[in-house]
Amino acid sequence: MLGSGLSNQVGASVGALAFPVIGPAGVVAVRQWVAAVLLYAVGRPRFGRFTGAQWRPVLGLALVFAAMNLSLYTAIDRIGLGLAVTLEFLGPLAVALGGSRRRLDAVCALAAAGAVAVLVRPRPSTDYLGIGLGLLAAVCWASYILLNRTVARRVPGLQGSAAAAVVSAAAYVPIGALVLWRNPPTGAALLCALTAGVLSSAVPFLADLLALRRVPAQFFGVFMSVNPVFAALVGWAVLDQRLDPLAWSAILVIVGTNALAVITSSARRPR
């Protein structure tokens, strides 16, 4: 789990190094292609056997998958890795708290809202478009979680996720081709984009599969909370993106509220 989280954030930071040459859209296109190759090899989707009821959530998942990565990487380009990933993390936090009537979850939601207000507080350097893109990535991640549940019920094995990745990658072919034609990549930029695809798609996917065979899903959900912290640390170490103490405090509040919500929800659930 430690390797999965670090790999994901290091991959995003390495991909950011290619932004000046091919932009976020070019990096995302390469990442989508790498993810499609990996998931197709693992899931082996049988497209010809999908019914209409199976195709609908798969296509929705493909659309969300594409929008989530593009909005996140564009947000990283504008507001930095730590802040962008923290805002994106509000998506799974909202899913964890959504529909709950417990007072503790209401307190967690209020604490997270206060932390977000600190992160996006108006300053001369505030990039509102970047913040909006980070929040869009959060909406996409929440939708991704909910759609994945539907896909898992309707499509056997990993075929649904693999099919969504392939469709998303296919949609990025004209986008990626246009971006790379208008901004010819250097060897270093292409290597960074490919590395981002491997470290942010292939390694976390395989590592998470191995981890979920060995640890309870509850513990896995709690451990996911550290991703914003990893993102802030990696952004500082690789991209020299520094956060002020207030931003660090807000990130830790969001991480803590998610961990608390997951732990208490699982503890109250009947065995």
Rank of each mutant, 00 (worst) to 15 (best):
R213N: 04
A53R: 15
V234H: 01
P156H: 14
A67F: 11
R213I: 08
Y172G: 02
L63M: 13
V107K: 11
S71E: 06
A137K: 03
A53K: 15
L110V: 07
V10Y: 08
A75I: 09
A163F: 09
T257D: 01
A165H: 14
P124Q: 01
R242C: 11
A96G: 09
L63V: 13
L190R: 07
L252P: 10
Q159C: 08
S125T: 13
A170K: 05
G176Y: 09
V21F: 03
L104S: 13
V203N: 09
L83F: 02
V58W: 05
V34E: 13
S225R: 00
A35T: 11
V118H: 07
V42E: 08
Q218F: 00
N258A: 12
V234P: 01
S168C: 14
R101A: 10
V166L: 13
T86D: 11
G98P: 01
Y144Q: 04
F89D: 03
V222S: 07
A163K: 08
A177M: 13
R123F: 08
V253N: 08
G43C: 06
A66F: 10
G221F: 00
L72P: 01
A171G: 15
Q32H: 15
N227S: 12
F220G: 15
V229H: 05
A232D: 00
P245W: 03
L199C: 12
G130S: 05
I254T: 04
T195Q: 07
Y128L: 15
N183Y: 13
V238H: 06
A36D: 04
T126Q: 05
L81M: 03
L63K: 12
V155E: 08
L135P: 01
V116A: 07
V10L: 10
G52P: 12
L63R: 12
P24C: 08
A41I: 12
I79T: 03
A106C: 10
L63Y: 11
R153F: 05
A16P: 06
V37R: 15
R153L: 10
V37K: 14
Y128G: 12
G43H: 09
L209F: 10
T74V: 04
V166R: 09
M1G: 12
G3C: 10
S100L: 06
L59Q: 06
L146C: 07
L191I: 09
